[in-house]
């Protein structure tokens, strides 16, 4: 029997096997995400169309309000719907991933009190679910671009990098909120507030070029500004320019949020089952 692995748990000591465990449970990532996707569209008539309806309606409203009524400028000759939708995609991805990850631990409280697995899997799989929605909604952007005959150029290859930034931002913020949510349910009310507020302070309905230059750096303290600018830069072709300082600032903040989120999550994780 002695060839079996020995595991020792001691009070107050962090275990060395955590990352190994995470690897061992990698299939659970997939299964939890798969469950959430299956469950979401069961007993619905429109099914997966729901992943399309929300961003499209928001895009229409924003195009009318910001483009037609407020007559804000687009970037170059880019049609306003494409300008809005290229920001809508990362924004919806972030907002969904962040709120689902933030609520994920509480939603799975029953599992947490009855089964062991690295808890990091739960918010991570919430981000994966939102990523699937993101992929589905991307189809609309492709459609819009074909409709308006707008062609992206070589900068498109940078897009996965910006997707990764959005995922990291949502995961990092989601880790913070989900861990805090376990003990203080107040944070459940903070999530919709952040999402709603964030939509207004992020350049979703308008181009960030409308922000005066001297405010541009402060504006980039909002990591979503950097991500959205990056999306537009990669998608909209030559019309869009990228402010490198702003991007670096956004990126730096995302790294800080993600690392601190991981640290906080890991340090509180062991107590989840006690307080949830």
């Amino acid at each position: 029997m002695s060839e079996l692995p020995l595991l020792t748990i001691e009070a107050g000591k962090t275990e060395r096997h955590y990352w190994q465990d995470l690897w061992r449970y990698r299939e659970l990532f997939y299964f939890l995400a798969w469950r959430d996707i299956l469950v979401r569209y069961k007993q619905t008539i429109l099914g997966i169309l729901w992943a399309l309806i929300r961003p499209v309606l928001t895009m229409l409203v924003f195009t009318v309000i910001f483009g037609r009524i407020a007559k804000l400028p687009s970037e170059g000759d880019v049609p306003y719907p494409i300008l809005v939708f290229s920001a809508m995609l990362p924004w919806q991805f972030f907002a969904n991933a962040f709120s689902d990850a933030g609520n994920s631990l509480i939603a799975n409280a029953n599992m947490i009190t009855k089964v062991y697995f690295p808890r990091l899997i739960i918010p991570a799989s919430a981000v994966i679910v939102s990523f699937v929605d993101f992929l589905i909604a991307s189809v609309i952007l492709v459609g819009l671009m074909l409709w308006y005959g707008h062609q992206p150029d070589w900068k498109l290859i940078a897009l996965p990098g910006f997707v990764l930034m959005a995922a990291a931002a949502a995961f990092g913020a989601g880790l913070w909120v989900s861990a805090l949510n376990v003990k203080y349910r107040d944070f459940r009310h903070v999530i919709p507030f952040i999402v709603q507020f964030g939509l207004y302070i992020s350049p979703v309905g308008f181009s960030s070029s409308v922000i005066p230059d001297q405010w541009r750096l402060i504006y980039s303290l909002n990591p979503l500004a950097g991500i959205i600018d990056g999306f537009r830069w990669a998608l909209l072709g030559s019309a869009s320019t990228l402010n490198q300082d702003a991007l670096l600032l956004s990126g730096g903040i995302i790294v800080i949020v993600l690392l601190s989120g991981l640290l906080f999550f890991r340090s509180t994780e062991k107590g989840f089952a006690d307080v949830i």
Binding site: L6, A11, I112, V115
Partner: peptide
Amino acid sequence: IVEPTRGRFSVR
């Protein structure tokens, strides 16, 4: 699932 406040255990 929960962490002990004190003590240790090993499982093989």
